[in-house]
Amino acid sequence: MYGTGLLKGLGITLKHTFEREITQQYPEQMPVLPARFRGNLQLDFQDCIACEMCTKVCPNGVLSLESVRDDKTNKKKLMSYSIDFQYCMYCNFCVENCPKHCLHFDHNFELAAYDRENIKKVYQRPQELVTDLPEEIVAAEEKNQKRISVMIGALQKDAPKILGKLLEDEEKGKVLAAALASDQDKLEKIAVMMVEDIEKAKKVAGALANKAAKDHPKEGNVVA
């Protein structure tokens, strides 16, 4: 008989109309994920022995690390570890090959970002683990930190002069100092740069000064 199949189909949809919805309301109600779900790759920094097994086995070059050798114990110490997640294909090789089991996937899948740079995750050696390093590196690091703090202090005290010297232009220095007066973060970054890489610091400061001169020509003059 023609049409019985159609009626049957309509009946099925009608039945489903009055059944309970199975939707999970995502932002409020998180999905229940299986234990072996691979979300975001995580590293336990302390356990890593910088053996580079993971970086060698990774087919896409997602992982990279920096390490220093401790001559006394003849062991490597991890300095920083970066996971460029945008190339990862979740093959789990790194996790399987890690001898210390310090890599693992967690269940976080909310990784959306506005910029590609923000996808990359970099683990710096935490402050409390710095003492663990070989002596000369610790000493160098301490010296560096001291120089940076001195520089920050100097910058806070007399920014126009130092910046003017850096830029080889006193006017510009004044403008930049005025612009950075309210921005402690940037000031500190410039200080770190001045200690570590003076050329880069010059470039960045120059760009910032130009921008400041363009944005607030009047304010700079008032301060001057």
Binding site: F85, C88, F109, A112, R116
Partner: peptide, 27 residues
């Protein structure tokens, strides 16, 4: 990457992403 031809507003990394991830991206 798609950003070689146009400006991308939101990147959703994953391989493949979970079905919820595009929701987060769109939000």
């Amino acid at each position: 990457g798609a950003d070689t031809i146009f400006h991308v507003d939101v990147y959703i990394p994953g391989c493949p992403v979970r079905p919820e991830a595009p929701f987060q991206g769109l939000l």
